[in-house]
Nucleic acid binder design. Structure first.
Lengths: 184, 184
DNA sequence: TTCTTCTGTACAATATAACGTCCATTATGT
DNA sequence: ACATAATGGACGTTATATTGTACAGAAGAA
């Protein structure tokens, strides 16, 4: 991977060109000197976190947009092209549509659980969070020694940095959308 | 909001305590001096982005986990508690389950579109991306002067920093999950 | 109780971030 | 064609990041 300060250099330069801002303009907006902005864009300096925070706030962009790399514009993922992962003798099926990569820090899955289907999961890692919306059937989540029943149309968000289970507690198939966010 | 270097101080300290690492240990893992790690944790220094990158990589955690603030563990969102936003005379309904806040940089919605329902959207902002999975019916997305038809079970990801439209091109209701990611 | 080890902080030296000023080049206006 | 304004970069100075070493206190072992 490229050095972080070179990624920062490219992103800041691209932003300034897109907005047609001068170094002077960025300096005024951010409170960081024109010289420093120039040095950052040329990759000649590794600025402190405080300086980058001032730049992000002044330009009203996120911190991470300054250290990310770019992606293709549009991509369609047909279900049949997704490699399904099955558990519980096929009763629990995971479709990883948008696996974790790049710098956006989350994954998007679809999950199908047949009636009686079940999956026990360990921690997904420090500080991880899950966001689930049920689109068909119902789901029982067990986490922190508590049961949560999520019905069609409802959602749940929970810390997934601890063991938890998913179970179809209804009589028809459960289909749900899952986003897993990984700060750690 | 608290100074960024103080947020960093707390997060690094909390991580080290959770792992029961000494300053020496962190120094070995990251290649950053023990003195520096100590100064960062006491909020006595605003380290450069290169130093923080070394820390994040050495400790195998994300950059953003070092500058984020913490959240409650678990929250269930019943559909009836979500304030629905309607467009197109009620034919297009948006349920914002997990709006954008905190530092995770994305929102999670459910959308329902009656047959013939339609919504035209402008850019969601610089660098924004959308991730959509269709759970019922079918969806036509128009972006970059192209049409994409997404059927039940399929997904699409596209740059949402330009105008785009959503339309139910089928004869039954369309229900979908939408995650919008905001790097900028 | 004493000795050893571990830990975090203080301190001094070095490297670099960050700023302000000046200069060369380019763009714009007359 | 010439003058002015805007822009980006060079340079010198100051402030601070970063390192290595020493030290004080706490914890652990004998």
């Amino acid at each position: 991977m490229e050095d972080i300060h070179l990624i920062l250099a490219k992103n800041l330069k691209a932003f300034r060109e897109r907005k047609k801002f001068s170094l002077e303009k960025v300096s005024e907006l951010t409170g960081v000197s024109k010289t420093m902005i120039g040095q950052i864009e040329r990759g000649e300096s590794s600025p402190t976190i405080t300086t980058i925070w001032k730049i992000a706030n002044g330009l009203k962009i996120s911190f991470t947009s300054l250290i990310n790399q770019s992606q293709p514009d549009t991509i369609v993922i047909p279900k049949k092209e997704v490699q399904v992962l099955t558990e519980d003798n096929g009763k629990y099926r995971v479709y990883p549509y948008f696996p974790f990569h790049d710098e956006r820090r989350f994954e998007v899955y679809t999950v199908e659980i047949e009636s009686g289907g079940f999956l026990s999961a360990d921690s997904h890692g420090e500080g991880t969070e899950e966001f689930i919306t049920v689109f068909e059937g119902e789901l029982m989540i067990q986490v922190n020694n508590m049961d949560y029943t999520i019905r069609n149309g409802d959602s749940i968000r929970f810390k997934a940095d601890r063991p938890h289970t998913y179970q179809n507690s209804g009589e028809t198939i459960t289909r749900l959308s899952m986003t897993i966010y990984y700060p750690a």
